[in-house]
Structure formats: C-alpha cells, structure tokens
Amino acid sequence: MMLLLQAIDTAKQVVDSLSKTVQPGALPQEELRFGDLLIKGGWVMVPIGILAVLGLVIFFERYFTIRKASKDESNLMAQVRSSIISGKLDSAVAICKNSNSPLGRMLQKGLLRIGRPIKDIEGAIENIGKLEVSKLEKNIAILGIVAGIAPMFGFLGTIAGVIKIFYDISKTDNISMGVISGGLYVKMVTSAAGLLVGIIAYVLYNVLNIMVDKVILKLETDAIEFIDLLEEPSK
C-alpha cells in the first residue's frame, strides 16, 4: 500500500513538473502586431518609409502623365492630313498647337519646316521627339534608385540590430536563446520592409518604362506617316 501511494505521489510530481515546463510556451505571452513590429524596427524604418512614399508619388505622377501622352491621336493625324492635302498649312499648325500633346508638338515643328529638304524636317521632328521622351522619362530613374537602396537600408537595420544584440550580451553575459532570437526577429523586420519596398519599386519602375516604350513606338509610327504625307505631292 505504501508503494502504491509513493508511486501516485511521484506521478503527480512528474505531471506538475511537465505542466510547468509546457505551459509558458503553450500560449504566446504577447500578441504579434504588424504596427508594433514596424515601430520596433528602429530608426531605419524612417528612411525606408520615406523611400516608399517617394516611390509611390513618383509612380502615380508619371503614370498619369505617360497615360495622357499615350492617348489615341488618330483624329489629330486625320485633321492634319486633311489640312495639308487642302493646302491649309496654317490650319494644320493651329490644330497641332491646340492639341497640347507630344505628337502635336512634333508635327507642329515639322509643319513649320515645310519648304526645306525632307531631311531637315525629319531632323527637327526627331529632336522634338527626343525632348518629349525626356519629359516622359523625368524622375523615373529615381524610382530605380529607390528599388536599389531600399533593400540596402533594410540590411543595414538588421546588421545594426545584430551588433546591438551582441553588444548587450557582452555587457550582461546573458546568452540565452530568448534574448538573441527575441531581438533578432524584430530587427529582421527592417530587411523584410526594405525588400518589400525594393521589389514594389522595381516592378513599378519597369511598368513605367514599358509605358514609355509604347509611347515612343507610337510617336515614331506617326512621325513616319507624317513624313510620307509630305512626300506624296512630290511623287
């Protein structure tokens, strides 16, 4: 009977010991919140946030500008063709000027050069086209820079956090896994944030470049059509 009681008592002690060991880790002591993680990321999250806002502002500003430049100009070309065929060059110039578009400015420059050799007209249109493309590409390069340096800021924050962790360990002689992992997962938030901003900026950068390429192709096509129109009377 004594042996049975001792066995029961021992079993209770083992169960109590296991429950004390498992219970602290069974439920999280602190709920992980996204906003808290961003705050705990440290000072590096400030430049990463600034880069994110800068990238979005540049993208939307350029997006609407390029989209406006890529609108269908078939009506403009038809009006210019009709005016040239009927000999109303002044009317064609006025139509191009009122269009307030890259193609309109290119055609206007070409119309003002009528009477000169075709090569001179082509050169004038090409020069205006380069200026218009430069206007469309304005600040897009900054988006590419954001895509490049945002991840670097993220890695910098993580490295700074690791340095601080080991500095604290050297001062306190506390090398417990809780201290190391607890500080490290917070600091890796900066890497995740930097990579996220960099990836998004890289995608947006290429989206704008694709849009600009489409506008360039359309302008070149319309410019060739305009030159062919000017050469028709001489054929």
Rank of each mutant, 00 (worst) to 15 (best):
S99Y: 05
K135R: 15
K138H: 09
E126P: 04
D72M: 14
F153T: 01
L107G: 06
R62H: 03
E132F: 14
G183M: 11
S181N: 05
S83V: 08
S181C: 03
A94C: 09
L184E: 05
I128L: 11
I118W: 04
P117T: 13
G87F: 08
E122H: 14
S91V: 15
A150G: 03
F64C: 05
N174A: 12
S83M: 11
S82M: 12
A160V: 11
I142F: 12
Y185M: 08
Y185W: 12
I128F: 04
G148A: 12
K138P: 02
R81Q: 09
K68A: 11
E137H: 05
L184S: 07
I159G: 00
I145M: 09
S176G: 05
D120F: 13
Y167V: 12
E73S: 11
P151W: 03
L76C: 04
D72A: 10
I140H: 00
Y63M: 13
D168M: 10
C96V: 12
S176N: 02
R62Q: 03
L107S: 00
V146W: 01
G183R: 05
G115A: 07
L111I: 11
N98G: 10
K68R: 15
N139A: 10
K187N: 06
K71E: 14
D168I: 15
P117Q: 13
K164W: 09
N100Q: 11
L89R: 09
V146I: 09
G115S: 08
L156Q: 02
A124Q: 07
P151E: 01
I159A: 04
F166K: 07
A94T: 05
G110E: 04
V162N: 03
K171H: 04
L111C: 07
P102K: 08
E122W: 05
A150D: 00
G183K: 05
G154C: 01
A150V: 08
K97Q: 14
V80D: 00
Y167I: 12
R116M: 15
S82Y: 07
R113K: 13
K119F: 12
V133G: 03
K130V: 15
L112N: 06
E132D: 07
M77C: 01
T172Y: 06
N174C: 09
G129W: 12
R81K: 15
I140M: 10
K88V: 04
I121H: 00
G157F: 04
S70P: 04
I125A: 11
S86N: 13
E122G: 05
P151Q: 09
I169V: 11
L107D: 00
G115I: 13
